[in-house]
Design a protein around this nucleic acid. Structure first.
Lengths: 294, 294
DNA sequence: CATGATCCATCTCTCTCAGCGATGGGGTGT
DNA sequence: ACACCCCATCGCTGAGAGAGATGGATCATG
């Protein structure tokens, strides 16, 4: 048995058919058939049930499939480990919440890109749930998400600690005044945004329920909507300096328990920490950034 | 990069030279050279430093080597998993202390071999330290050893609980009487036997120090030596029925703290529990054996 | 029921590439 | 100086992977 056999096997299992797998692998169907046959002969067990719509896994195939994934991942990691001599190099794909990227990451990204020109840096943004899924699927090496995250396959480390504040129209003088607003809406950056649940809890604790949701793709649009009295939002304090000073929106501090949010960096527990990523995290560490700011 | 490349790489690293690796792999040296070169070209990093006595690993090679091991192990496990349909079959190589094998395992082994004729069962015996090393090196799937065993790569489960007894010549009436015996020796089955340390501690607690050691390969020889007054030994009570009844040796019970010994079954944490092994452990479980004895 | 589409198995042909054997150069110990 | 051991390289050969064509089976559709 060989790793390339397992690659073919995995493609067939994923595509649900030998013809489709052949297209996926840029080869012809007869080849796929032959290699699967060879693998089955070697193992002495059929791996797929053939039927007119394609194939599906037998029990033996289902037992083999997770190994195919693990071995493929391990081979990629082996090559990366051999190439990684401690100086960051190659591709580094990270994920982040959009608010975290805006608030904390831009100077880190800029400095990192300057310091390590050998690294092809990619930053993808999305919600905590999306990013966690991306990390698990190995689409990104790791991600900055809203903590805490507990998953057996992930390891996390706290990176930033922020205080959230409630943003409302200037005419609202306290969060408690929201309870009797019947037309209340919550404004979020994206559907599924991590702060939404927290905002719902905060409003519910003050007797405000039954709100609708507005989703805007940019922070500026959100500020505009809040300033216009369309709704309220919850954002890290660090993000709302200029808008608040302009008096366009009112910023309401919250009790520490409600305001505190921790950004953690998560990555798969079973992957090696690449030099490129290690150097990035080193630059993102709070103490380091404080020192750099002096 | 391919698993067979890594196999060649691993052999070269292990043998310390391409010629030796070629012999080990049943191929010729030019092939090994070519494949290593190919691997190095693909990775863009030299993996070995060539010198007149052979080769040794560069840093990149040293980073790659553990992956070669893991991938090789995983490939073997993948084949075993695919073939393993729940009915025990194939090779099952276990380790055990000799005393445990003699005391507990023979009926289990016999019954298991009868119940699962498809399994090629092998039992290797040795000391706890030897067996733990064998498990870690994957030479055996698991082993019955003297507990407790704490190692990050191993998982253990208690299987048997025994009471040890001190065996002396019939003329010795209590363990305390040994303190003034200047010619005292301890008799063990093998150098490095797990019970030796415990016996030393027991004797030391009674003021007996400065003994010599005798090593005999069989239990009968040990009984003979003890009966002849050559020394003392420590064995599970269950092993010493007939000899004690004959009056050839004196059996001294010990306090529970000193007598209790737990036999645990250990295996690597990162390997799948094969059906063959699962069935064996099921048969070795104390409650099961008690039920079978009724 | 006929037809077309889809999917897998099998066959043949081609050609790459792994493996083999031989040779050569470099270094080491005697 | 010589024998020895090690690795690099070259040409040759054959197994085997890949490409393409064909055929049989099944299913959807009108």
């Amino acid at each position: 048995m060989d790793a390339s056999d397992l690659r073919v096997f995995e493609a067939v299992a994923r595509c649900g058919g030998m013809s489709r797998a052949a297209a996926d692998l840029n080869t012809v169907q007869s080849n796929v058939t032959a290699r699967i046959r060879g693998l089955e002969d070697e193992l002495g067990e059929p791996l797929f049930r053939r039927h007119s719509r394609g194939v599906d896994l037998t029990d033996a195939g289902a037992r083999l499939l997770p190994y195919a994934h693990r071995i493929a991942a391990l081979l990629g990691e082996a090559a990366a480990a051999a190439r990684d001599d401690g100086t960051p190099r190659g591709a580094l794909v990270l994920g982040s919440l959009e608010t975290t990227a805006a608030l904390h990451l831009s100077p880190v990204l800029a400095g990192y890109a300057r310091a390590f020109p050998g690294v092809d840096l990619t930053l993808r943004t999305g919600t905590t749930a999306e990013m966690v899924a991306a990390v698990l699927a190995r689409r990104v090496e790791g991600a900055f998400v809203c903590g805490p995250v507990a998953h057996p396959d992930l390891v996390g480390q706290p990176v930033f600690r922020e205080r959230l504040a409630l943003l409302t129209a200037p005419s609202v003088h306290s969060p408690e005044a929201l309870a009797d607003r019947r037309d209340l809406r919550i404004v979020v950056l994206r559907a599924g945004c991590s702060y939404r649940q927290r905002l719902e809890a905060i409003l519910a604790a003050r007797g405000a329920v039954g709100y609708r949701m507005l989703e805007f793709g940019t922070l500026e649009a959100i500020f505009g909507a809040v300033a216009a009295g369309l709704g309220v939002t919850l954002l890290p304090r660090g993000l709302i300096g200029p808008v608040w000073q302009d008096g366009r929106v009112a910023v309401h501090d919250l009790p520490a328990a409600e305001a505190a949010v921790e950004t953690v960096f998560v990555r798969r527990a079973d992957t090696r920490l690449s030099s490129a990523l290690a150097a990035f995290l080193e630059r993102a560490r709070p103490e380091r950034r404080a020192a750099a700011a002096e």
